[in-house]
Amino acid sequence: MIKKGRGMATVYYPTGFSGGGDPDIVSLRIKTDGTIDMTNASCEMGQGFKSVAIQMAAEALDVPPSIFTIDNTNTDTAAFSMDTAGSRSTYIVGLAAISAAEDLIKKIKEFAAASLGAAPAELKYEAGKVFKASDPSAAMTLAQIGAASTYSGTSIMGGGGFLPPPGPPRDPETGATVPTRSLAWGSTVIDVEVDDETGVVEIVNLYDCYDIGTVINPLMAEGQVDGGDIQGISMGLFEDLSPYFPKTLDVYASNFTDYIIPTFMDMPRHSEIKFVQSHDPFGPFGAKGCGEMVTNTQPPAIVNAIYDAVGVLVESLPATPEKVLRLIEEKKKAE
């Protein structure tokens, strides 16, 4: 018989390396037509790093994202990145991009000062234009600055970085330290159907409500959440490389026939995503890390939902049909 159940989970997740101290650097260079080369060696692995990095640099320079190119391709030309891990890239590259943009604006003003006949401090920068505060008609665009600086042999490159402050040494007795200043938060509700004759669990509804601070690009963030849901469901229901562990590591899965990962058939029948956007006081434009937390709520929410449906508690992941069925049978025997 199909039994319905509902479960939930609430999590939080640190942004950046534990203990801080993981810097990134961004460079911004104006080309002769006013378009901008951005560099930072973070990795694009599906999460949308390049799009989000450009959006934050564009925001900091108050110009459209379409005028950017980004180079993250190698260690000879792309500015330093500590790693692409720990839900850190949006946050740390974003702060580095803001710093690089400030540096670029300062250098633009220094270069334009001579042409516009004013001291750098008398100039204002807005939306890709630098102009005299007292006479906005005395102005130069990024294209004019890019051409004039390059063809006069002047280098204009904005560089900036960000270092999350390293936490104090951990107290060995109490564990006191500062692992991170910024945390993302989230709650998920999952409705399941459990077949008590086969132990098969199906995800019916999945509701995620996450706070990743300001959402820099909702398309990318929703993509992360959808992917996280699938990976979380997979951890909850399917993935186990060595099912006979800890007795033995054999038989060990070595292919996707023995090692089950979800397909479209395993997606929730219905899922919804909502972001509540608290403003992180430290993050770029109020953003927090997103990448990892979105894969954390599903396993406990599923296990809690299974309990709600059939009254058995899966105390070791994953909640395979075999495991669920054995628990149901044990429960029946005990009753």
């Binding site: 939930m8 939080y12 006191a176 945390l183 601070g213 608290s278 927090k288």
Partner: peptide
């Protein structure tokens, strides 16, 4: 936090309120 440092921009409560509304609780 469990490590003794103050928590900034918490929102367990807001995400619970949000997910309750979404799931009809």
């Amino acid at each position: 936090n469990h490590t003794g440092n103050p928590i900034a921009a918490a929102s367990t409560i807001e995400t619970l309120q949000g997910v309750a509304a979404m799931s009809g609780q």
